[in-house]
Computed example of a mutant assay.
Amino acid sequence: MEFGIFVPQGWRFDLVGIDPAEQWRAMSALAQSADEGPWASIWVYDHFHTTPVPSAEATHEAWTLMAAFAAVTDRVRLGQMCTCMGYRNPAYLAKVAATVDLISGGRAEMGIGGGWYEHEWRAYGYGFPPIAERLGRLREGVEIMHQAWTSGSATLDGKYYQVDGAIVQPQPLQAGGIPLWIAGGGEKVTLKVAAKYASYTNFGGSLEEFEHKSEVLRAHCDTLGRDFTEITRSTNFNTIIAPTESEADERLAAVVARLRPHVGDERADAIEADYRSSDTFGTPEQIVERLRARAEHGLGYAIQYFPEAAYDTSGISLFEREVVPNL
């Protein structure tokens, strides 16, 4: 199993209390630490407003961070989980990603999805089209990016996007283009797009739900004549780890206490419950056991989100020492 780690960018109120002038220093230090550690990749979210409620707290833009991380790291791969197709013209996005790939020496990943955060969509003037249109844009946009990265230009007279000889030069350094991570578990469209184009998928749910989505993906691959084993399946995990269960509880309480003034009691309680149900909440032994079970059902890549990362890296260090080597 490979491991990625999210770098806090403010979206989940994970830079609260840090002066905005110092936030890049905090993010870059975490990225460089990951670059020196056992992590295969670093990740950010593609969002403009905080969640689960919008606020005036800082949220840094994903692709700007990609370029910055490319310049201050040497080894780790660089991804977003996931870029919202509706936020940028796909030909322009293909150009941006190709530039990041050049800066990084061929380390860019493209996480891509249909998007969901309605408040954010409307606030930035994108409207909020129905799910069928969002997924239609995903399908056409992925085709445009695939063309751009494999041929150097893209042409598509689609329902949602029209490009006519959009030149993307220089092309990405990576042979065959930047790897596509198709995020989401939609069975009729998203996983079908993944079966055609993805190097990786990203969906979660219970172990039973993960297995079901995997079988849907396999069926789409069979229909298209693609080898299912060519696609690595990944999941994101909210991670709080400590040497003992009681210490994990204390860490969780501290995280929730930091969030509560910003999100309110109801949402804070829901966040607490969500963390408690995560496969990566608890002691190293508990986490290894749960992730090993996931691996037995086909999980090949785990991306960890540590809510404490900007304030306390001891949980990350413990995960690096006692979880990663065992998987």
Rank of each mutant, 00 (worst) to 15 (best):
G113F: 14
G114E: 03
E57D: 13
P52N: 07
Y87D: 09
D249Y: 03
C84I: 14
P325S: 12
A166V: 13
V288S: 00
L327A: 14
W181I: 12
K159V: 08
K188Y: 06
F210S: 07
P170N: 13
V142T: 01
D101M: 00
L327Y: 03
E230V: 00
T280N: 10
E109W: 05
S41C: 08
F128H: 08
R233F: 00
H146Q: 01
A56D: 15
V193S: 00
V168K: 00
E289M: 14
H262P: 06
F3L: 06
H220P: 01
L135I: 02
Y45A: 02
T235L: 14
G152F: 00
W121Y: 15
A194E: 05
V168T: 14
L224T: 10
R12Y: 12
G315E: 07
G186C: 07
T150K: 01
M110Q: 05
E247I: 12
I240E: 02
H47G: 11
H212G: 04
A257M: 02
Y87Q: 10
A219H: 11
D157R: 04
A253S: 12
R122P: 11
Q32C: 07
A123E: 09
V255Y: 05
Q304G: 00
D74M: 04
F6P: 11
D227N: 03
A40C: 01
I42P: 08
W121D: 10
A219E: 10
N202T: 14
A40F: 01
A68F: 08
W11N: 06
Q169D: 09
I178Q: 06
G152I: 13
N236T: 07
A154M: 02
Y160S: 09
D14N: 04
E289Y: 04
R25C: 05
S277A: 11
Q169L: 11
E187V: 02
V256R: 14
C221A: 02
R321V: 05
G152K: 04
A268K: 07
G225S: 08
G113C: 00
A195I: 14
P129W: 04
H146A: 10
H49D: 07
V323Y: 11
K188M: 09
L173E: 12
G125N: 08
S33P: 00
A68P: 13
T155Q: 06
E245V: 02
I5A: 11
A29H: 02
L135F: 10
I112L: 04
T235Y: 11
A242W: 13
A219W: 08
G177F: 00
D222N: 14
